[in-house]
Amino acid sequence: MRILLIEDEHRVAEIIASALREGPRYAVDIATDGRTGSNLAQDGVYDLIVLDLMLPGLNGLDVLRSIRSRGDRTPVLILTARAEKESVIELLNAGADDYLGKPYDLGELIARIKALIRRGKGAASPVFTVRDLELNTLEMTVKRSGNLVDLSPMEYRILEYLIHNPRAVISKQQLLEHLYDYNWERHSNVIEAHISNLRRKLNAESDGSYIMTLRGRGYRLVQFKNEMEQ
């Protein structure tokens, strides 16, 4: 998952980014003013946008409106120091999905971000099940038939992303965009290596593959056992 954090207060941005990278292992990009934030949001590679309301240049509400006016459906969580009802109503009406007042609880912020991403992908439960595979986004664990599968952080993130988009074909480019922030050098063969490791670990007792390769197009989650044969 990749998050865009639009926050002008350097320390606040730093802390939220660290928490998101350390906790749910999300990729995080930081924009320190509204205009940069709005431009980055246009790339459409983000799974969620955290937006501070008071920003230099273009304020948070303007950024939100420009995002929504483009038809972008990325979940947006607003951070605000204002708690007046009117402003909350205005924000939600302008297309915000959630808001959190300062000073917020870091744990709550992360939980809300996770929930918004989940909801954005059409899921309600933090535990995803595909056949005998169980991915718990709270504990960040993967179990196969009840047995823990030991995945590296990047392998987990790839599987998490595929499971969050169960019916879609995900290209390597897409994976790169959603799993790495701008601070990383990105090579598509890194993805290939991770996928191959992931497959190996998941199919340790070989019971049909969970990840289907569509040549030249990308990857897709295999939801039913007999899907591969068809």
Partner: peptide, 22 residues
Amino acid sequence: AAHELKTAVTIIKSSLQLLIYQ
């Protein structure tokens, strides 16, 4: 002033929360 103080408190609170996160 409330805005500035809230931001300052947010920074201190969340940086400590991050510290005990793991």
